[in-house]
Write a protein that binds this DNA or RNA. Structure first.
Length: 406
DNA sequence: AACCCGGGGAT
DNA sequence: ATCCCAGGGTT
């Protein structure tokens, strides 16, 4: 966020006069003198109108998404785990593959983690897959294979937080439970003109209170999905399409000309850059891959050993601890850049051909736990997008198309 | 409250 | 480049 944007956001928390009076209001909404001191009355006529209008709008325009074609709590839970911090369009093919490979929660529980991570490869936030697997086992063993039908028990499952519990409870079980995700936070911050940083504890409290106030007894799941659909397609972060909004006449931010100033967001820290060296050893079509320990970054995934270093020369001793003997002659083949939420990785890629007779195994140090010679295209284990880029760059031209393909 | 955890699409 | 996405867990 630029300094000026930040300043205007802060200023708007006190008073918003910039655009007021410059737009034609469809009707009068009295400006609230003390927004946080005077909470909107629960069960008001306005709340009811919002719920009604959004429900009807959703019935008319809702996108046809795979997880909207089922009432199976397992399928809906699976979609919600995948959708955490991940866009709808990205999730769809993964959701379809997962459901056909694991049609029931029992099938998922019986799978081994490498298999699950293989199907998850490329989706990101791999801890979700591991925790989801744990939850599947918990549902199978402790709940007899049926998802619990109340928000509190859902919330107790690993990987199910406040949002996901509200989503499964309302969408799969028709329970009047609220939910707040990124979309809903934006929509509600504008509808009610909530001026707190939506990531702060105070802001979250205000948002959940608003969501709980609004969610209707009738078809709460439809209402919650309507809020998210509105945020995804109309009430967008920039240039919201207010003229197409079914509740534009009930939106306080719009009435005050502030829709572009909300939600308020604290500035983010900038991400540090990290230089690494990856060593790719080929023996025919197999490559030496190490499995990362399940705790941290890329946990449980397999990759060519990678160490933090500024140059190949500097990397040799650390690479030895990852099972790459120092006598192997590595040659640089290029660089890969990979952006994560909290780090920018710049990886120098080096490779070598190793005769099959020289294949060895080694005791590995953290973050690796073991290693093996694998065909990276066999889809037996989890491989990150970063590792795929590295493999693609280092493989012989004839094999490049194979490695690049998902 | 701050930090960790991927990858990609829109602008 | 920047933002942010149907967030949750850990410290």
């Amino acid at each position: 966020m630029s300094p000026s944007r930040k300043a205007s956001a802060k200023a708007s928390a006190k008073v918003s006069t910039k655009a007021r009076g410059q737009i034609a209001l469809p009707f009068e909404i009295p400006a609230r003198s003390a927004p946080l001191a005077e909470p909107i009355v629960p069960g008001s006529e306005r709340d009811h109108e919002i719920a009604t209008a959004l429900g009807a709008w959703f019935d008319a325009v809702a996108r046809d998404l795979p997880w909207r074609r089922t009432r199976d709590p397992y399928a809906i839970w699976l979609s919600e785990i995948m959708l955490q911090q991940t866009r709808v369009d990205t999730v769809i093919p993964y959701f379809d593959r997962f459901l056909s490979r694991f049609p029931t929660v029992g099938d998922l529980a019986r799978a081994d983690l490498d298999q699950v991570l293989s199907l998850w490869s490329g989706l990101g936030y791999y801890r979700r897959a591991r925790i989801m697997h744990l939850a599947a086992r918990e549902v199978t063993e402790r709940h007899g294979g049926a998802f619990p039908g109340d928000a509190q028990a859902l919330r107790a499952l690993p990987g199910v937080g406040a949002y996901t519990a509200g989503a499964v409870a309302s969408i799969a079980f028709d329970l009047r439970e609220p939910l707040v995700d990124g979309n809903v936070a934006r929509v509600l911050s504008r509808l009610d003109a909530i001026d707190n940083d939506i990531r702060s504890t105070t802001g979250q409290r205000a948002l959940w209170a608003a969501a709980a106030r609004l969610v209707p007894e009738a078809r709460p799941g439809r209402f919650n999905q309507a809020l998210m659909e509105l945020g995804a397609t109309v009430c967008t972060p920039r240039a919201p399409r207010c003229t197409a909004c079914p509740v534009n006449g009930l939106c306080i931010a719009r009435a005050e000309g502030r829709e572009e100033d909300l939600p308020v967001l604290a500035p983010k820290r900038k991400v540090p850059s990290v230089r690494m060296v990856a060593a790719v050893l080929w023996a025919g079509h197999r490559v030496y891959l190490a499995r990362r320990t399940e705790g941290g970054l890329f946990g449980g995934l397999w990759e060519p050993p990678m160490v933090e270093a500024d140059s190949l020369d500097e990397a040799r001793t650390s690479l030895a601890e990852a099972g790459i003997p120092e006598r192997i002659v590595l040659r640089e083949v290029g660089r890969v850049r990979h952006i994560l939420t909290h780090r920018r990785l710049e990886v120098t890629v080096a490779r070598a051909e190793v005769p099959a007779a020289l294949r060895g195994r080694a005791k590995l140090a953290s973050p690796y736990e073991r290693a093996s010679w694998l065909d990276p295209d066999a889809n037996e284990v989890g491989v990150s997008r970063l590792a795929r880029k590295i493999l693609s760059m280092s493989s012989p031209p004839a094999a490049r198309a194979e490695v690049t393909r998902r």
